[in-house]
Amino acid sequence: MRKMLIKGKVWRFGNNIDTDIIIPAKYLNTSDPKELAMHVMEGVDSNFYQKIKTGDIIVAGKNFGCGSSREHAPIAIKASGIQTVIAKSFARIFYRNAFNIGLPIFESSEASEKIKENDEIEIDADKGIIRNLTRKEIYKANPIPKFMQELIKAGGLVEWTRKRLKKKR
């Protein structure tokens, strides 16, 4: 697996950030990633898309992405330029959707509790280590299951399935 180092500035959110917050349903009449990105996190911050820069990172509390199965949620996050999401825990459909579309995300209670808005952090995905460059702290992330690593390496579930079908033929 290629070395995955993710570095960026943090935007903080609380617990139970649901999919209606991440991408309100009124925008679900499209599946265009660019259009969805413009409304990312609009449920809590109507100007969020204007504020963020490519490479920024979201850090949230528990149960991030709860609610609907809409893949539009991780798509909006990914297309907005947000590199990754760290949370204490993720709702399960959001978790699988993120990996399926090739958006790596990290579970870490410690990081979720200690990282503050505007902190600069660096994630070593292979080692499962999160470094807080602002506060000079180090947190551990839960290891990404081998299969999910495989999905990210393949570039998502579609690529993974495409290669598998090719092999079968």
Binding site: G67, S69, I93, R96, N97, N100, I101
Partner: peptide
């Protein structure tokens, strides 16, 4: 659709997934 879990009432294993899961 997240409410796919409804069909458990019939004694089926039913769960919500994403669009990419459905594609695959």
């Amino acid at each position: 659709d997240s409410h796919t879990c409804t069909y458990g009432a019939l004694g089926a294993f039913a769960t919500g997934v994403g669009s990419t899961d459905v594609a695959s």
